[in-house]
Design a protein around this nucleic acid. Structure first.
Lengths: 113, 113
DNA sequence: CATTTATGATGATTTTAACCAACATATAAC
DNA sequence: GTTATATGTTGGTTAAAATCATCATAAATG
């Protein structure tokens, strides 16, 4: 790359830990279902190496690889709830307590793109 | 790549939808906190382009980029709960109803690597 | 309206993800 | 113990991710 991708190469520990835990969870779910890494790989159109990387919690693997693995195991639903605006109490509070001044946004204050 | 990465290039619709929803959720959370794309990018050591891709729900962006964005917004916790073995009722059922025969695994039936 | 600010879009460049072959190893089955 | 199976490891290849510069555009501000 032209420059460094710090997130992907050396993520914050919390980020690294969370991804690794997700990978372990995926592995556990796969073993419980008695599927081989290759089975999951075939279902999503990836190689066994990529799925193995996902289970290892490799930060640089694509989001699609992780989500695909979850999908192959019937566990994709949980992902949609992550950062769910309805459950983001912090964000809701900040939005309601909005001061009159506002920095320039592209489309109003909220996202309605 | 040597060959096609179907998951990353053309994921199953359910996967694509889930990722896009996650991206929208991240965007909503960021706007509520009145942060710029560049703010999030700086916090995780990425360019504004990568964070923009995340908010667009680009499947090929790295897991670290997504997790990093969540982390920058204080929303990483939710990710660890995805595919939580304790909540994987399907998996737990399959494991308890295990037949005597078993295909070769690397480390027992469970993952304890 | 002019200015400033945040983001979108495009194209080029560099690094790296995804892939594969081949071999190693650990477990299960025979 | 031998064979078969599933996964780990390594090195090398290629396509794509991540980056950046630049310009375009939309919205808040003065």
């Amino acid at each position: 790359m032209v420059n460094k991708s710090r997130v992907t190469q050396t993520p914050p520990v919390a980020v690294e830990d969370a991804i690794q835990r997700l990978g372990r969870n995926i592995r556990t779910a796969r073993l419980r279902r008695r599927l081989r890494i290759e089975d999951v790989a075939n279902r999503i159109g990836a190689s066994r190496f990529t799925v193995a990387d996902v289970e290892k919690g490799k930060p640089g693997a694509s989001m699609a690889a992780y989500a695909g693995a979850l999908w192959a195991l019937g566990l994709l639903e949980g992902m949609s709830e992550v950062a769910d605006p309805d459950r983001d109490e912090e964000g809701k509070t900040l939005e309601s307590a909005r001061s009159p001044k506002s920095a320039p946004h592209r489309r109003r204050l909220d996202n309605d793109f």
